[in-house]
Write a protein that binds this DNA or RNA. Structure first.
Length: 286
DNA sequence: ACCCAGGGTGACG
DNA sequence: CGTCACCATGGG
């Protein structure tokens, strides 16, 4: 990877193949928005745009000294060639590469990921995105850049001080009390970042104590924001994919799937993203 | 009208 | 430990 700057633009070149469109739209993050050729988002209270062309990733605005944040966010220090080679060599999942090659698992902000995936429960990606956008408009700081306006994801305190009625009015439904209770716990000083330094199982047990966080949501938070790439979220799509690809379209026990995930290695959660993308792209049904 | 979506909770065995 | 009704909402 080569790092260059022109004015307020960071240009990363000599990257392995990365598919920014798939990565931003695959359902790991709900806030990236594509506007005339570039992806727009607010990360750590800053407006940012990202565009990929000619094998170069351009991030703007980004000043010298800020590049490490984005290199980490897009997981650019990880060798995805090795990961895709491992997938290619596993006949059970190699098919996923046809459509999912280039996917990257972002390293997102823990609180935003926590609340976002509480909202995701028994919901669909389009509606999740809409709810989160309304939540940001309702309680997030307005951020402007070059004539563009977006709202930052609200702080724990900003959500904790909302009313349950306000949360229901933006479409959160029965999840409103979960969002409120969990935001209050975080605003009260709970150290989410501390979970990065624990082993995956311990961090998972901690997350499961938060209202609205069950096994699947916990695994998403671990994988997408706490650096635990061995967390393997199983939603309805992955459930179908696992049955189709590993269990001859039949049922599996928790012990069997745990064993399977173990065989997929230390970054099984990243492989999960390739499988998830494939399952949705092909609308697999059992 | 019915089914589904990046499921969690609580009750019950 | 596993199962299951119930939970809001909007799109297919």
């Amino acid at each position: 990877m080569k790092i260059n700057f022109t004015d307020d633009k960071l240009i990363l070149s000599e990257l392995e193949h990365i598919d920014l469109d798939k990565s931003c739209a695959c359902g790991q993050s709900f806030r990236w928005e594509k506007k005339n050729g570039a992806w727009h988002c607010v990360l750590s209270s800053k407006y940012v745009t990202a565009a990929y062309e000619n094998n170069m990733l351009a991030i703007q605005p980004c000043m010298r000294g800020e590049e490490e944040f984005y290199i980490d966010y897009f997981d650019l220090n990880r060798n995805y060639c090795d990961i895709e080679r491992a997938i290619a060599e596993d006949e059970r999942i190699s098919e996923c590469l046809k459509c999912a090659a280039g996917i990257r698992v972002f390293n997102q902000e823990p609180f935003e990921t926590l609340i976002s995936f509480i909202i995701s429960a028994n919901n669909n990606i389009k509606r999740i995105s809409g709810i989160i956008e309304r939540l940001c408009v309702l309680a997030g700081e307005k951020i402007e850049y070059a004539g563009n306006i977006k709202h930052a994801f609200p702080s724990p305190k900003a959500i904790a001080t909302l009313s349950e009625t306000e949360l229901k009015e933006i479409g959160t439904g029965y999840r409103a009390p979960y969002i409120l209770k969990t935001a209050r716990i975080i605003a009260d000083g709970y150290n989410l970042n501390g979970l990065k330094n624990m082993n995956t199982e311990s961090a998972r047990k901690e997350l499961l104590r938060l209202p609205g966080v069950g096994p699947k949501v916990a695994d998403c938070i671990l994988l997408f924001s706490l650096g635990h790439k061995d967390a393997f979220p199983i939603d309805v799509w992955i459930d179908r994919a696992l049955r189709a690809m590993f269990f001859n379209s039949g049922k599996y026990t928790s012990a069997e799937v745990k064993e399977l995930i173990g065989t997929l290695g230390e970054v099984s959660g990243i492989l999960q993203q390739y499988i998830f993308f494939y399952a949705r792209e092909n609308n697999i049904k059992i």
